[in-house]
Structures are given as structure tokens and as C-alpha cells.
């Protein structure tokens, strides 16, 4: 009884046992969707979370029609990293008012990659506060837009007030290699944060 839906669906390998997530965050139009799409092995999917004006998540079908709820879209993609391990990337909206959604996204996440545009560095402050408040370890990737000014790393670090250990890399979200490299920098960083086990 295979439906058309089921046969078109990219299911996980039967051997997958562990699913991890990394958040790809940043201000409006910084390249989150592009980044997730570049790396995903499945057609990136978009899903919605409904929230009340007060910021609570709606988990009732009846709530969908409610005019007092707002919809927050997030995109996500998937990378199979081994027979047993799959990684999900979430492109997350950067607004503070979506705190509840953020709690859900951040819980159990390995860390976050913060995309920034040097032409709009200031716009990244809010999202960096959010990431830090969630206690998520992160790396910063400068997504290079052609028209954006190039600054020395030290200046970007200072502007964003990065801790000395926080990786700062540059990437092109349209390029698979470059985007993979940015993720690697983040995971490398995560490993240095975890004390070696004896």
C-alpha cells in the first residue's frame, strides 16, 4: 500500500540511531536558508510553529485557525554523517520575541553557527545575545556578499565582542565546500569545549 507520498519521501537509513541538530542563525536575509539548502541531502523542508501573541506554542489543531496566533517559519535540512548518525540543520529566525520557539530549537542542540554580514554587523547583536542566553556554544561565519566591506578579523571580533576562543571564519553559503568548512570549525570548537575523557 505504498502511497505516492511515501514513495517520494527520503526516509532515513534503517541503521540510523542518533539524530543531532545544529542551528544556523542570523539576522534577516543573511543567508540561513541558502546555507541549509546548500548542505542538505534532502530537499530542504519548511515547517511552521504557531505561537500565541504571548509567545506560547500552540499544539492544538483547533488553534491553527485562531487569528490571535502568529506563524514562525523555520527551514531545516539533513546530512547523513554515518550509517548510524544523522545531523539536522535548522535555519532559525532571529527575533527575541520567539523565545519559546528558541527554547525548543536549542534544547539538545550541539551548538549554533551564527551567520553575519559585514555590512550589517549591528543587526547580529540581537541574535548573538539570544544564542548566548540559551547557553549554546557557537562559531561565527562571515557570509561574504559582494557589496559588503571586508574588515580585518580583529575588527569584526571587536565589533561583535567575540571571546578569544570563538571561531571566526568566512564562508559562501552558496558553496558546499565552504559551508561544510564553516560547520567543521564549529564542531572543532565544540570538541575543545568538552574536557577530554580519560
Amino acid at each position: 500500500m505504498d502511497s505516492a507520498l511515501a514513495s517520494d519521501t527520503p526516509y532515513l537509513r534503517e541503521t540510523v540511531r542518533t539524530a543531532l541538530k545544529i542551528l544556523v542563525v542570523g539576522h534577516f536575509a543573511v543567508g540561513k536558508t541558502t546555507f541549509v539548502g546548500t548542505l542538505s541531502e534532502i530537499r530542504p523542508l519548511r515547517t511552521e510553529e504557531r505561537m500565541t501573541q504571548a509567545g506560547a506554542l500552540v499544539d492544538d489543531l483547533a488553534g491553527i485557525e485562531d487569528k490571535t496566533t502568529t506563524t514562525v517559519a523555520m527551514d531545516f535540512g539533513r546530512l547523513t554523517l554515518s550509517d548510524s548518525l544523522v545531523l539536522y540543520l535548522f535555519g532559525a529566525p532571529g527575533q527575541q520575541r520567539f523565545t519559546r520557539l528558541w527554547d525548543d530549537l536549542a534544547r539538545g542542540a550541539l551548538g549554533a553557527l551564527v551567520l553575519v554580514d559585514t555590512a550589517r554587523l549591528k543587526q547580529s547583536f540581537e541574535i548573538m545575545d539570544l544564542v548566548e542566553r540559551q547557553g549554546l556554544p557557537y562559531a561565527v561565519a562571515v557570509n561574504h556578499f559582494d557589496a559588503s566591506p571586508r574588515f580585518p578579523d580583529a575588527e569584526v571580533r571587536e565589533a561583535l565582542d567575540l571571546a578569544p576562543g570563538t571561531p571566526l571564519v568566512s564562508c559562501d553559503a552558496r558553496d558546499r565546500r565552504s559551508s561544510t568548512q564553516a560547520l567543521i570549525s564549529l564542531v572543532d570548537h565544540l570538541l575543545t569545549l568538552d574536557p577530554e575523557t580519560p
Binding site: M1, T47, E49, L57, D60, R78, V86, D104
Partner: peptide
Amino acid sequence: CRGGALSVVEIAGHLGLPVGV
């Protein structure tokens, strides 16, 4: 789900349902 394993968020995405629901 009959076709194979998926994550919660993929199920929501494929069916066009909000995650909470």
C-alpha cells in the same frame, strides 16, 4: 511513517502541519 523512519520535524514538514500539533 509506514515507509520508514523520519524525525518529528520531517513528519511535520512533509505533512504541512505545525510542529506543536
